[in-house]
Simulated scan of single mutants.
Amino acid sequence: MRLTVVGIYFRLQITDTLGVWVEGTHAFDPAAGITRTFWYRLPTEWVVNGAILQQRREMLVDRLYGPGWRNGNPDGSRYIILRVREKVLTDGEAAGKPWLAERGGFFVCAPDGAQREVVPSEL
C-alpha cells in the first residue's frame, strides 16, 4: 500500500548577514554571512512548472524575517540577503525524506497561507 502525501516539498536556503546603518547606507560584511535551511510542505497550487510562485516565496521570506524587515530594525540594522537557493523536490527526492538528516526550520503551509511549524517527522 502506498501512502499518498498531499503537497509539494520545498527547500529554501538563505544566506544573510546583518547590516548596520553607516553614513546613509547599510554597511555589511559578506564574509559574515550565515546560511540557514528551511523545509516546507506546500499546497500543490503554489508550484507552477516546477517552481514556486514568486509571490509565495516572498511571503515565506517575509514570515521568516518578520513584518517590515525590508525597512530595517528600530536600531538601524537590517538583514541583508546575500543568496537564496530554492529547490522543489521531485516525488523521488521527497520519498527519501532528506529533511530528516538536516537541521533547520520545518513548516507546513495551508492553501490560504496559514503556516505552522512542525517537527521533521511531521513534514
Rank of each mutant, 00 (worst) to 15 (best):
R103A: 13
T37M: 05
R11G: 08
W69E: 01
P30T: 01
D112I: 02
E58S: 13
R103I: 10
T25R: 07
G92H: 06
D112V: 06
Y65G: 07
N49A: 15
W99H: 01
V84R: 07
F38S: 12
K97C: 12
T90P: 14
D112Y: 01
L123G: 00
E23K: 07
N73P: 02
R103L: 13
I8T: 15
G113V: 07
E45K: 11
Q55I: 11
A94P: 04
T44A: 14
H26D: 03
F107S: 04
L89A: 03
R56P: 00
V20D: 14
T90S: 15
I34G: 00
V6W: 09
I14K: 00
N71A: 14
A114C: 04
A110H: 11
Q13E: 15
I14W: 02
V61P: 10
Y40V: 02
D75I: 09
A101H: 12
N73W: 11
V108P: 01
I81H: 05
A114D: 00
V20N: 11
T15F: 02
S121G: 08
T44I: 11
L18S: 06
T17L: 01
S77N: 03
L64N: 00
M1H: 13
Y65A: 06
I80K: 00
R85L: 14
L89F: 15
L60R: 04
E122D: 07
H26P: 02
L12E: 02
W46F: 08
G7I: 05
C109I: 11
E93G: 08
G96P: 08
V119G: 07
L53I: 11
